[in-house]
Write a protein that binds this DNA or RNA. Sequence first.
RNA 1: GGGCGAUUAGCUCAGUUGGUUAGAGCGUCUGAUUUACAUUCAGAAGGUCAGGGGUUCAACUCCUCUAUCGCCCACCA
Length: 908
Amino acid sequence: MSRELGKQYNPRENEDKWYSHWEKEGLFSARPSPHKPPYCIVIPPPNVTGILHMGHALNDTLQDILIRYKKMRGFEALWMPGTDHAGIATQNVVEKSLAKEGLKRQDLGREKFVERVWEWRQLYGSTIINQLKKLGCACDWGRTRFTMDQEYSLAVTEVFVRLYEKKLIYQGDYIINWCPRCQTALSDEEASHQEIEGSLYYLKYPLQDAPQEFLTVATTRPETMLGDTAVAVNPKDKRYQKYIGRYLILPLINRPLKVIADEMVDMEFGTGAVKVTPAHDPNDYNLGKKHSLEFINVMTPDGRMNEAAQKFKGLDRFKAREAVIEEMKSQGLLEKITPHTLSAGHCYRCNTIVEPYLSKQWFVRMKPLSGPAIKAVKKGKVKFHPERWTKVYLNWMENIQDWCISRQIWWGHRMPVYYCSACQAKDPKKGIIVSRTKPLKCPRCSSTELKQEEDVLDTWFSSWLWPFATFYWPFSSSCQPSAVSLQPKEKKEHEIKIKERKADLKYFYPTATLTTASEIIFFWVARMIMAGFEFTGKIPFKDIYIHGTVRDSQGKKMSKSLGNAIDPLKIISEYGTDALRFSLVFGAQGQDLYLSREKFEQGRNFANKIWNASRFVIMNLGADFTAETTKGAAYRDLDTVNRWILSRFYSTLEKVNRELEGFRFNEAANSIYSFFWHEFCDWYLELVKPQIAQKDTRAVMYEVLEKTLRLIHPFMPFISEEIWQRLKPETGISILKQEWPRLEKKFIDRKVEAEMEELFNVINSIRNMRAEMEINPASQVDIRLACNDTKLIRELEPLSSCIKNLAKVGNLGFGEKYQAGKNQYAVVSKNMQIVMPLEGFTDIQQQIEKTNAKIEKLSSEIINKEKMLGNADFTARAPKEIVENERTKLCGMKEQLKKLEAIKNGLR
RNA sequence: GGGCGAUUAGCUCAGUUGGUUAGAGCGUCUGAUUUACAUUCAGAAGGUCAGGGGUUCAACUCCUCUAUCGCCCACCA
């Protein structure tokens, strides 16, 4: 490959090329290896209908960083990819496309509709996968799983049956969250509560035995009054004592309602009297059970009023609300309406307000599952990063509610439940068969009239098995379809396959790290931990990294519906994948991420900087350099500058290691960024320019660049590969196959770093002087450095040429002491005075003022420091080093002050 | 009603267990272009670390209260 580099980095030319190279070389695949420790991440499976958004981009970049980092560190790192069938979401998408043809899913029927969804998946299911490839994800694609795969589905069935057999799954009539648009039940987590501005309606219900008297109730959902079967008051409420046990007449319906007493009624709220609608409110449901009330459902599944609503039948629930109010008003039974904000559940898929609705559903008893999952987190076997999410998790787990898992949709895992109509005819509670395979006949009555349950399972009921079901757990059933008819040879092969799969799970599971967004903790993370314990007896992962929510520059959550989303693919095509990735990671850790297009420029600029620095290095090595060219001499022969950059590299490496191990991605990115740009480029390369032909310098320059590219690689895989391929003097498949640089502490030399600090101070001060004095940038100045610390002078003298080159100095002199003199200008760098002849430069008054300001500031700092050191408590109680440190500091400051004063006098 | 987070330069944010004279990027201003990069380089201006109180020799950092903003959870009709 040619080593010539263009002037600008062009991501488009590189990305696809290197991605297919990695895939071709099999760099992403991982197999159990006796010689390597395992490291595994299972991807949070994106919806099969999904398109890559910034949330994915961030989440998957972080995982890719971990995977590439661990691969380089010598782990057998597996990133398990796949997609989620996303029941409701996918069904909605396909229904929308049907709607374009003027069809509803009912027009097709269940079987045809499900076929359509599979076709849809065939066509679009790989979109998101391809987009992850654009992002550079190092997933082991050969393992790609889908939650509706036949083998995955076997795991779902297995789990359902096991839980049912343990009596942890039950069916029953309860109030659940019903989405009238999707026409299915939702779990509590799927109904997201949002505040809405509503009203509180005060309705007057007349007494049966005294129709002129009324009891007023307050409600936010007046349409549900049609299903009222009681009115409740608090037994302690003096106002209502006399009504308890008497009857009211429900207006519009004329149903007698008993006034019941119950502690749970809040006397403060509304009128203190509550209408009770057991079929449409969870509290009222409980009251209904407790007081044996009638349950009257007044709505149809699509959110309209049913025949129980009598003349309101057919009206949409919100239209019915208006109609009911209108009617009550005309009958003089509406007392008042007051504004009221309430929080209402919204369907997390279509944002429709959910209706608390009484229906027969399937539930998982969660309490028995939560115990081990709570303990594991409390004991630190599973850790959240940042740690604060632990509390959120524990709080939810400790108050866990049963999980409604049945969905009245068609796309999903049909429940392995079969009904025997013969048995059910006798007793509806009987005749339920739960089985791994479809039973041929009823075990009780031998009837063959069996019907499978229509409902499908909640999508999360399959996702919660993801960390082990992706490894083909529970194995046993894998051979099922034709197991009986297998030939001996096939059978043997099959056994080997099973054995391999078991070894695979054993090696990679428990997985190492799970990376996800905080919204998913309840839906997925918590449930995976429970499933892990219940079905494998182990934790599913050790670390959970929760990243921030991606927001726009206004702080709004980025979403398609709000129209504020920045499309990551667009950023990729404009700025390149590496720029996108770097900018995302560069953002805050664990905090929410505010994004704007400008943020990505920073990533692009960094990529370009890497490109050009490398271009410079390659140019100077000569495009035909070899391993011989890049081989350096012994460390002891290196000069300060070269020793310094090695020291800084290894200091940076140490920091980056620590930061990555602690999931502080942004800090790691930051460390690499400032090392590369400000130390390697701004200082080192500038310093060595004059000596670039030296063999040792070339070797060090090469080595540091090559190793830095390895640090960059997990963050910016494409550009690091592209340059590395041109840089390598010997063959190698990929930078990803290189070892993560080993930390060589012997190269970290604080003394060299301190010397160089001093050099930088001097150069900065001279540059500063020149700018202040408006000296022609092209012209050289003569400088004398004055310092009574001869050791310092001895250290700096060999670096004279550096000062001359980087600060444009002609003659550079060293002197022990500064003597105030006319026509001299001087400043104080940390430990020395820098003296410049003043001839020809004007505006001395300004310099005097500046110097005065400095003196003033320094003086007050000295006073503070003296006070501090004068404090007996301080010297007595603070650690010795600190006190000593402060003393030296004070000395230095006093020196500085003296020098400044000398300068001031010199200026006069 | 509970819980969590945020509040540091004009903007976006760093600041690891308390211990230099509080940092970066963007933006602004000044200057630089045959010499790797203007997607650049050099320099400057800009902060009573939201406010009150406390602990400590020492607080941006720990505790407490208050304010503002945001998120999550909860059955208040």
